[in-house]
Design a protein around this nucleic acid. Structure first.
Lengths: 110, 110
DNA sequence: CAGTATCCCGCCAGATACTG
DNA sequence: CAGTATCTGGCGGGATACTG
């Protein structure tokens, strides 16, 4: 979770708890790309146009530490890692679906 | 919508379109408080502990300009305004419900 | 009551380069 | 390939005071 949200979750709104976890700029998009299965770091970076390795790494770390995503390190050379939805992340599927559906129905750019 | 998201929506992920609209730190919470009906500026500020007038005003402006919230000004003295979910905002109800449900099931602070 | 005006700061994120 | 290191900056948001 990002520091920005630490204060917000004291407002005792249930929705705040969720936003604290998925509120990062790219987090929902990352989770969205993990819906269909395991993805490598590199796959994520290429499929999410515009994200830098630095930012992707940062967001993934928080997602992992929050229990939404699990990280598997194959400890090979060259290195290979795999990210997938963890238990908690799978509980987000209804949210992801709702967000994606809305986004499809209301594109901001043609 | 906030400037931060302008670049993000070019990644052609449907979810990005949605996050650009609701991605502000307090936006989901504001929308959540508007679910049950019309709220005055002052009511929102008191029920959302921790938000400043400045930030609330800013977020509401964006929500209105994005068509999620409608603002009614009664032009009285002392001034009175009313905020409620607009058409587009009501389409977010499934998302709001999903987010609130998840947040209830996974509190971050006891 | 419903904001606005100002000032300010902290963090998220971008850019670039580098490494095991 | 999968990141980390370092530097930088912009913008969202906080604090406080003020106004029609």
């Amino acid at each position: 979770m990002q520091k920005t949200y630490e204060q917000m979750i004291r407002c005792h709104c249930a929705s705040a708890n969720t936003m604290a976890l998925i509120g990062g700029k790219w987090k929902i998009i990352i989770l969205d790309h993990l819906r269909d299965g395991t993805q490598h770091f590199n796959e994520l970076q290429r499929s999410i146009a515009g994200i830098t390795p630095h930012t992707l790494s940062q967001n993934l770390k928080e997602l992992v530490s929050d229990g939404l995503v699990s990280r598997q390190d194959f400890k090979t050379t060259p290195p290979s890692t795999a990210y997938s939805l963890d238990t908690l992340g799978k509980e987000l599927l209804p949210i992801l679906t709702a967000i994606t559906t809305f986004g499809e129905n209301h594109p901001l750019i043609k």
